[in-house]
Design a protein around this nucleic acid. Structure first.
Length: 472
RNA sequence: GCCCCCAUCGUCCAGCGGCCUAGGACGCCUGCCUUUCACGCAGGUAACACGGGUUCGAAUCCCGUUGGGGGUGCCA
């Protein structure tokens, strides 16, 4: 029996949690939950200059929102300086590193002179410099051999050691670099599976060499997840692309839909059922089945998954989820309650809910110009239809103000106004346009009879008369 | 430049040597249902990058080409 699985998500607090990081975090979480292992969090905040501690809150908040619950307390690298110093000391003692006083500019100048190849040229490798202020410690990479691993998603990957430059392990100010802290921590924390983005593939051989030099155990496995790309097939970037997880939350996406969609990027269930509960995804997910090629983050498909997920909610749950998006407060909550199932089936995101019931909340619905043009300006027998509808609705007994009677009344009005089909029946598709626009300001919305029922007699009649007046 | 990775419909996924006349999903288009919209239903559109091998047989294996991406910091 091998060790229980232990994975980690290791964000650096340099920005809001983005969908690409969410994708990697999810893969880690799925593996941990499936295997009954642990999902740990480690904040990689070794770069004091770039750190924005407040962003840690966003990362944690978003992971929590997504339902990616972690085990234990997040580890902060900024609090583990002594450990890295001791590890570095070990490397020095073993002769695995050497000190270097070359500045970036100097290295660059030398490279330019030598023919423009980037990377450190090993200038100080044999200078036997003593440690001192401003002197960085560089790892002495072997010049022969290869370093590789069997990647769970990519298969065998290996690099010639000769292609690996002597990378910095300790900065001139004594602070640890990413690779040292990262590799040391994984070993120290007993991480069994390192699951991260493809952009880390190139640093993995260095990581491995470092772990070996430290005399620590290599992780059992690595998995480098496909990168998420934009329409230009470029890695999703904070600047260009729509990647902030909290933005999606604010735009009315459900966390379970986001997680469901993210799982579908690079992977798909064998039975082809794409929209499904996370519990099933936990059971079915296999890193070995994850594609190695980059995946396009398709907002259209995300919307589809979101709409499906919304429709799968119970009505009560749907209303509960929509509530934070109702800017009109209690009246909107009540309005939604009266038309919940009708609205639920029609929205793709939670932000689309309020516009659909707004006509029930405001005194005067905002008139959509395109709708007005389509149904009123260009409509046929508009005045007749409005007059007839007013008359028929006004004649309805108070106790009859219900969908079926309203339907009957409007149908009669349609016939009155001449909106009839070949059999002489009411042609509702044409007739309902002006009525709908009159009461809601738009040509699209929840079913008319229910809408009118909920709107109530007085407001319905008032709006119909108001619209009739402006038709002239 | 160098190193690494990738390559099936526009997009995501299936396919792991014969079941492929290449399947599903999103998108798009048609039609049906229908009080608008949405849902649902029935169709349609559309792909194995190219060239060599290996094999009785290749989308599937190997090599190359081309194309794309990632990395190349005293960032993570």
């Amino acid at each position: 029996m091998s060790n229980p699985v232990r994975v980690r998500f290791a964000p650096s607090p340099t920005g809001f949690l983005h969908v690409g990081s969410g994708h990697s975090a999810l893969a880690n979480w799925l593996v941990a939950r499936q295997m009954g292992g642990e999902f740990l969090l480690r904040i990689e905040d070794t770069d004091v200059e770039r750190n924005r501690p407040e962003l840690v809150d966003n990362v944690l908040e978003m992971l929590h929102w997504l339902g990616l619950d972690w085990d234990g307390t997040p580890v902060h690298q900024s609090e583990r300086g002594d450990l890295y110093a001791a590890a570095a000391e070990k490397l020095v003692a073993a002769g695995s590193v050497y000190f270097c006083d070359c500045t970036g500019d100097v290295v660059q100048a030398r490279n330019k002179e030598a023919g423009g190849k980037p990377g450190y040229d090993g200038f100080c490798r044999d200078r036997n410099l003593e440690p001192g202020p401003g002197r960085a410690a560089r790892f002495r990479t072997p010049h022969e051999g290869r370093t590789g691993w069997d990647d769970l998603v990519r298969g065998e990957v290996s690099f010639a050691n000769a292609d690996l430059e002597d990378f910095v392990v300790l900065r001139g100010n004594g602070a640890p670099m990413f690779l040292l802290a990262n590799a040391f921590d994984d070993a120290d924390m007993g991480i069994t599976h390192v699951i991260r983005g493809e952009d880390h593939v190139n640093s993995t051989p260095k990581y491995l060499l470092l772990v070996d030099a430290l005399g620590m155990a290599r992780p059992e496995a690595f998995a480098h997840m496909p990168l998420l790309v934009n329409e230009g097939r470029k890695k999703l970037s904070k600047r260009r692309d729509d990647v902030s997880m909290s933005d999606y939350r604010d735009r009315g996406y459900l966390p379970e839909a986001m997680v469901n969609y993210l799982a579908l990027l690079g992977w798909g269930p064998a039975d082809g059922v794409e929209v499904r509960p996370i519990s099933e995804i936990i059971d079915l997910y296999r890193l070995a089945d994850v594609n190695a090629s980059p995946a396009f983050f398709d907002q259209k498909k995300l919307s589809f998954v979101n709409a499906e997920t919304i429709r799968g909610l119970s009505s009560e749950e749907f209303q509960r989820r929509a509530e934070p998006f109702l800017t009109y407060g209690a009246p909107a909550v009540a309005a939604l309650a009266s038309l919940a199932t009708e609205v639920q089936e029609r929205v793709r995101t939670l932000t689309e809910v309020e516009p659909m019931i707004e006509f029930l909340v405001v005194d005067e619905p905002e008139m959509d110009e395109a709708s007005w043009t389509k149904a009123i300006t260009k409509g046929k027998a508009v005045a007749e239809m409005l007059d007839a509808t007013i008359a028929r609705l006004d004649a309805l007994a108070p106790g009859d103000w219900a969908p079926e009677h309203i339907q009957a009344a409007v149908s009669q009005a349609a016939i009155d106004a001449g909106h009839v089909n070949e059999e002489g029946g009411p042609q509702l598709s044409k007739a309902q346009g002006p009525v709908r626009v009159a009461i809601s300001g738009r040509t699209v919305g929840p079913p008319l009879w229910e809408s009118i029922t909920v709107l109530g007699r007085d407001r319905t009649l008032a709006r119909l008369r108001g619209t009739r007046a402006s038709v002239g």
